[in-house]
Simulated scan of single mutants.
Amino acid sequence: MLQINVKKLGFAFGFTGALLYLGCIIVMLTAGKEGTVTFFNNLLHGLDTSSIIRMDVPLLDAFFGIIQTFILGWLVGACVAAFYNAQINVIK
């Protein structure tokens, strides 16, 4: 079996998470508060998000949020690849 490149999978997960975060920003900028609440209520199977949606997010908070999301995604992807690689080495 082939091994997965830990850094590349980490980057793929991190970049995907950052893109999702950016998509959230775009939804909030274009749909307004009501549209954002409706979008996330539908996405989360009817969970009422109206009390947790905050529209006045400072630019610096959004910047750090996208960076943190990338880092967490990178760590998750790297762990998945490392665990997968460790498992195929055990089976051999």
Rank of each mutant, 00 (worst) to 15 (best):
I52W: 07
G73Q: 00
V80S: 04
G46E: 08
V80L: 15
Q87V: 12
I67V: 14
N5C: 14
L72A: 03
F70P: 00
A78V: 02
C79G: 04
I52F: 12
S51P: 04
L29T: 09
N85M: 01
L19C: 10
F40G: 01
L60N: 13
F83K: 02
C79Y: 01
R54S: 14
V57D: 10
N89R: 13
L9Q: 08
F63H: 02
G14K: 07
I26M: 12
F64K: 07
G77H: 02
G77S: 04
V6Q: 15
F70I: 05
N89K: 12
V37P: 02
V27F: 05
I25V: 12
A18L: 12
D61P: 00
W74M: 04
D56W: 10
V6A: 09
L9A: 10
F64E: 07
I66M: 06
Y21H: 13
M28H: 00
M28P: 01
V76R: 01
F11E: 10
M55S: 07
D56Y: 08
F11S: 13
S50P: 08
K33Q: 13
L47Q: 13
L22R: 03
I25W: 14
I52N: 03
W74S: 03
G17F: 14
C79D: 00
A12C: 08
L22M: 13
I67R: 06
A81Q: 02
T30I: 09
Q3F: 10
I25F: 09
G65N: 07
A82H: 08
N42P: 03
E34Q: 11
I4G: 05
T36H: 03
W74R: 02
G32A: 09
L19F: 03
M55H: 11
K8G: 04
C79M: 03
T49Q: 12
G35D: 04
N42Q: 13
D56C: 09
L60V: 15
I91M: 14
T38Y: 09
K92C: 07
F15Y: 10
K92M: 09
Q87P: 00
K92G: 13
S51T: 13
L2W: 10
V76W: 03
A12I: 12
V76I: 11
S51H: 15
G14V: 07
D61K: 10
G32M: 09
N89I: 01
L59A: 13
A81N: 01
S50T: 07
T49G: 11
S50Q: 12
F39V: 07
A18P: 05
V27Y: 07
